[in-house]
């Protein structure tokens, strides 16, 4: 979901602790949007069938490795 410039600036100010000027935001926004797209890809990535040997395996009776 696209984030408006104002929201983006507010999030950065609140969590990053610094204000971005409009010019700075214009400079960093394309790359930031690339990251946000990749982050969304990570969220959409379905790894439910790709289990680590160290993770819970419900199909095997819910036993996690010690």
């Amino acid at each position: 979901m696209p984030i408006s410039d104002e929201t983006m600036k507010r999030i950065i100010a609140e969590y990053g602790g610094f204000e971005l000027s409009d010019a700075e935001l214009a400079l960093v926004k394309p790359e930031l949007e690339n990251y946000l797209t990749e982050l969304q890809n990570l969220r959409d990535l379905d790894l439910s069938d790709v289990m680590s040997a160290r993770l819970l395996r419900p199909a095997d009776g819910g036993q996690a490795d010690a």
Binding site: I11, I12, Y15, G16, V28, E31, L32, Y35, L36, L39, L42, R43, L45, L47
Partner: peptide
């Protein structure tokens, strides 16, 4: 440092 501010706990865990 900017993009890291948008990483949620569940994103970190999934990574």
């Amino acid at each position: 440092t900017l993009a890291g501010q948008f990483v949620l706990g569940r994103d970190y865990s999934k990574a």
